[in-house]
Nucleic acid binder design. Structure first.
Lengths: 348, 348
DNA sequence: TGACAAATTTGGATCGTTCCAATTAAATAT
DNA sequence: ATATTTAATTGGAACGATCCAAATTTGTCA
């Protein structure tokens, strides 16, 4: 029931030094003598002192607040959950703590949480912007010199750092693989067409088709929500097509899982009767049945990189925009299936 | 570009009032005249003032910090991700912002992040404790009067509020359902046996068996990591048993998905050849193929309830422990399968 | 031993807000 | 009109740390 907070002055008094000295000890300054440091540290531990960062921040620039913010648009998507874990990982080790907020694709909510984080004096922000985010939404932040790193989705025209995965290369590698397996009718399933990520992956898909001399067929591009349910929906529509596809590159892993589900509901076995490739390489991808062939972007690694970039900018006091692109590689597992030779329709 | 911060004094000066008045309008006090309030608000907007909560907290008790902490042991498990979303949801609407940290089951990490959150002056904490957490780990927090709500896993002997789901009732309802379908060899798969949650679910399982006059067979209890991979592992072992089970209650949905994967790898179709029931009702449960029969605990709802309980305690200044148990219901989908045809008749 | 430099320590002043008691302005009662 | 409420406003002292310049102690060297 201790209502009284213990402060530096009380520590100072108990240790027989001045509050300035205590402060020096707290900051690990080399100016203080080894023996007094020991004494003060002992008293600190003994009295159960807890540092008041709020008070400290008042006097320091808020790049020292040791708080970073991270806002994602859908934490229930394990891609973002893992991204957050990656960020948390490096941020924790650096002695920071993170504000984490979920926007659920609402720009209003996003504006609110960013404002709130700003009031709390975050030293930096990592954001996977909600659809429809505009440069103006981040403007005040960058204007006040707070580093911002945009991940996953870009914001056209915003003068902030970004970390995007190489969507073009990934999509095109995936399609090349399907082509190599003998597929010619390859669909592109899922995702919202009005996003930059969708556009980039679609272009990668088209590039690969073109270099394989396969004509692009717009009816094979079936968009939907970038979720498992969206995947079920997309494959259902794909299967009803006149000249149905034999394989698909999916917008992301969630869609790919949905596509597998939908395939089975249509008595088709993913990997055997239809080639499926995802995007993201979420953890479940490797343990799923069939194991998902997917473009690995390593969400945790991406989170870690974003955090490192942000911390670098915070520490250097230099928030000049920097655009990183995360490398990407195709990991071939089972869902893309074996090479086609004929119409092999086999049921188990 | 370090733009200097605008403070109340500057607002006061620009609006021709005193800083005290500005403070009053900031807090929405009814003491200030409507016309001056309007004038001040206008200036605030005009100059792009941002409130400095750190400074405010210095003067107020830290139950007003508008920060709550949430620490989970595994954010990559979608149960916890959803829990966090539920918490974020109510907490955001109440004008709070949350510190979110992941411990990865490390008590050391947990200790660190809790200490760090405390330095930042959180008004309350929601924690799903890492395995091996002791009451002492939360002691300092409660001693300083900061409300704590423990979720999912309990901590024996800690004087804090808790919100646990009704594991006993859920497990037993699940087993009753399998019995009603005609199963007699029912396994309990996955989970770490040294946790309270495991124990509770196991007892529920046993209770249901007993009331169905089925002898408990310890070899049917196969523990493993509570993850998808753990599920694959557990079912592999179960399938090699002499008198193999025909159905299983799984420790959680992640395990259940793994069990489905493992079943298929063994040429058994979940739902047709083997009944599978999960626990948690993660979002993927309803869209999976087969759709997972599971004990619904509504993770988001649980997060919301935990947050509400915490906010109530923060606002009332009353942190007396309160133990809530979350109701639970069996949602029957496909993975538990139809009634067995070869059901042996028994006296009713 | 005294002078001078280096190593430590320290007393305010300060950060941006809230709180309190005190002041002033406006409204009402006498 | 004056006295008395009531409504609005205000200056200054907190809150708990850091920072700076100045003061103190210690060490070194002629």
């Amino acid at each position: 029931m201790t209502k009284e907070r213990i402060t530096v002055v009380e520590i100072a008094h108990a240790a027989g030094v001045s509050k300035s000295t205590v402060s020096l000890v707290l900051q690990g300054s080399s100016l203080v003598n080894e023996v007094t440091r020991a004494k003060v540290s002992a008293v600190i531990r003994e009295l159960g002192y807890v540092y008041n960062r709020g008070a400290a921040n008042l006097r320091q620039s808020n790049s020292k607040s040791k708080i970073i913010g991270i806002v994602v648009n859908d934490l229930t998507n394990s891609f973002f959950a893992e991204l957050a874990v990656g960020v948390d990982d490096v941020v924790q080790s650096a002695g920071y703590v993170q504000f984490l907020s979920n926007t659920g694709e609402s720009v209003d909510r996003q504006r609110e949480v960013i404002a709130s984080m700003r009031e709390h004096g975050i030293s930096g922000l990592i954001v996977s912007p909600a659809r429809g985010t505009e440069p103006a939404d981040l403007k005040p932040l960058v204007a006040s010199g707070i580093p911002v790193v945009v991940v996953v989705r870009n914001i056209q025209g915003a003068k902030v750092s970004s970390l995007m995965s190489d969507n073009h290369a990934g999509a095109s590698a995936a399609v090349e693989h399907l082509v190599a397996l003998g597929h010619r009718r390859i669909a592109f399933l899922g995702g919202f067409p009005d996003t930059a990520v969708f556009a980039e992956r679609l272009v990668g898909y088209q590039t690969a088709l073109k270099s394989a001399d396969i004509a692009f067929d717009a009816s094979l591009v079936i968009s939907s929500a970038p979720s498992r349910a969206g995947g079920v929906d997309a494959i259902d529509r794909a299967v009803r097509l006149g000249d149905r596809p034999t394989a698909a590159l999916c917008f992301n892993d969630a869609v790919a899982f949905g596509v597998c589900d939908g395939l089975r509901a249509n008595r088709l076995e993913p990997g055997a009767d239809f080639g499926v490739i995802g995007f993201d390489d979420v953890i479940e991808a490797k343990t799923a049945v069939p194991a998902l062939t997917t473009v690995s972007v390593d969400p945790q690694g991406m989170g870690r990189r974003a955090a490192q970039l942000l911390l670098k900018q915070i520490n250097s006091g230099n928030a000049d925009p920097e655009a990183l692109v995360g490398s990407v590689r195709l990991v071939v597992r089972e869902s893309s299936g074996p090479a086609r030779r004929d119409v092999e329709k086999r049921t188990a």
